[in-house]
Nucleic acid binder design. Structure first.
Length: 430
RNA sequence: GUGAUCGUAGCUCAGAUGGUCAGAGCGCCGGGUUGUGGCCCCGGAGGUCAGGGGUUCGAAUCCCCUCGGUCACCCCA
């Protein structure tokens, strides 16, 4: 704590080796997404506030109390994006991406912002890797969207999670259901906790999240959404489940699973992990058939998922999965006092041109100190520049693993290092 | 937004009842002879004890406030 400033509450720096682990995990994710036909989109980090107000829903927690909204100097209301789907749909409509053929399959990665009270697995700036398939209402695309994170997590070596799915219907069937549920809650209100009494009025679907034992008991006889699905929604849901079997996704139907964002319809799902505490949903998503219309476009349904990267990283750490491969320096260029810095820099640059990972001393340290530094950096070789050898156009090359060292001509240096590295890894350079 | 809990050097932590209590290990920097690492030895730098206020002759140690971390609620990724 030497400096004056700290990162704002709920934010943090991502420093090596975490930053390197993050990079690796993203690469694996991108590769899977691309293999499924998804292409990358990057939207602005902020949008007109209306994109979220209308996209996510006026009454949602996100919109009513969690957004970073500000007025810019032109008087326009802007908001730091709290999630990725609404911006992607905005871009889809604005740029007529459907003209590239539907469904449009897009993926994104980037920071999201929500002003919540920080907690393990919950931050004010966090990162999501997500995908959207827009323009198709084929149940098969729902199952594809659910299967991708499943494949991803398995490839990362993760095991300790469950996939829970549900259908929350469409406007036609959800409305009668909510009426029925509300009526039930009214009749059972004397058995509910105070929070649930409030929920019963504001957001009845949420009532199933309550952890109070008394409430859970009271809700045993509550009507469940899947029993109220209209014919189309029922058929869609059944079909999604069948396709999931075909794709080898082990799922559990969770009739009480709901979503906090208004635009969701039909398919809703979450990936719940063990041992993450309260914030145990590493991935969530679902279908959103009304979102495009809410943003002023023509009706066009879509499905998507989003992975919380910080939570994913935590799950990986907990399961000891996906070990980090520490980057290793190939060669460190050390130099003896009195050596021309220009020549040292030339040698360093030439090694880098040869695609070797190379570094040098920039502190004017003693040779001994440079050796220590090279060792700490994990360098495989040290090149020592200076003295008699240099006058003959040669340098000393030392292998820190075997402690062997040779005198080599400068022109042969890179080649010699390559050969030694090649032996190590059993391959020639290319 | 609510509640609980914690906050001493870069890191992990010692510091009984307030009066050499500002420390250790690791890390970092330097040295152990003239141009060479990993082990070992020696030396050094780094903290207004989260910040502010109060009680007291005197507080890292007691009280209050603020900030931050953690956990839970809430909500979600």
């Amino acid at each position: 704590m030497s400096g004056k400033f700290k990162a704002p509450r709920g934010t943090f720096d991502i420093v090596y080796p975490d930053s390197e682990k993050l990079e690796r995990i993203l690469q694996i994710g991108y590769e899977i997404l691309i293999r499924h036909g998804y292409r990358r989109i990057s939207t602005p980090i902020f949008e007109n506030t209306e994109v979220f107000r209308r996209g996510i829903g006026e009454d949602t927690d996100i919109v009513t109390k969690e957004m970073y909204t500000f007025e810019d100097r032109g008087g326009e209301s802007l908001t730091l994006r709290p999630e990725g789907t609404a911006p992607v749909i905005r871009a889809y409509l604005e740029r007529s991406l459907y003209s590239g053929g539907i469904p449009q399959k897009l993926f994104y990665f980037g920071p999201m912002f929500r002003r919540e009270r920080p907690q393990a697995g919950r931050y004010r700036q966090f990162h999501q890797l997500g995908a959207e398939a827009i323009g198709s209402d084929d149940p098969a695309i729902d199952s594809e969207i659910i299967s991708i994170p499943d494949i991803y997590f398995k490839e990362l070596g993760l095991r300790k999670y469950r996939v829970v799915v549900n259908s929350i219907g469409c406007l036609n069937c959800r409305k009668p259901y909510i009426e029925r549920l509300t009526a039930f809650l009214e009749s059972a209100k004397h058995d509910l906790c105070n929070d649930c009494k409030k929920r019963a009025k504001r957001n009845p679907l949420r009532i199933f999240d309550c952890k109070e034992e008394a409430c859970s008991e009271a809700l045993l006889k509550a009507p469940l959404m899947p029993d109220f699905l209209c014919e189309d929604c029922r058929a869609h849901f059944d079909s999604v489940l069948e396709m999931l079997k075909v794709l080898g996704v082990s799922y559990e139907v969770e009739p009480r699973l709901v979503r906090g964002l208004d635009y969701y319809t039909r398919t809703a799902f979450e990936f719940i992990f063990e041992g993450l505490g309260a914030q145990n949903a590493v991935c969530g998503g679902g279908r959103y058939d009304y979102l495009a219309e809410a943003l002023g476009g023509p009706p066009s349904g879509g499905v998507g998922f989003s992975v919380g990267i910080e939570r994913l990283l935590r799950a990986i750490e907990l399961e000891g999965a996906c070990p980090v491969v520490l980057p290793r320096l190939d060669v460190f260029v050390a130099w003896i006092e009195g050596t021309s810095r220009k020549q040292v820099l030339e040698i360093l640059a030439s090694l880098r041109r040869e695609r070797l990972c190379a570094d040098s001393d920039f502190m004017g340290r003693s040779l001994k100190a440079q050796m220590k530094h090279a060792n700490r950096l994990g360098a495989r070789f040290v090149v020592i520049v200076g003295g008699e050898e240099q006058k003959r156009g040669e340098v000393v090359l030392r292998d820190l693993d075997s402690s062997e060292q040779w005198t080599v001509g400068r022109s042969k240096l890179a080649q010699k290092i390559r050969e030694a590295l090649g032996e190590q890894w059993g391959e020639t350079d290319g």
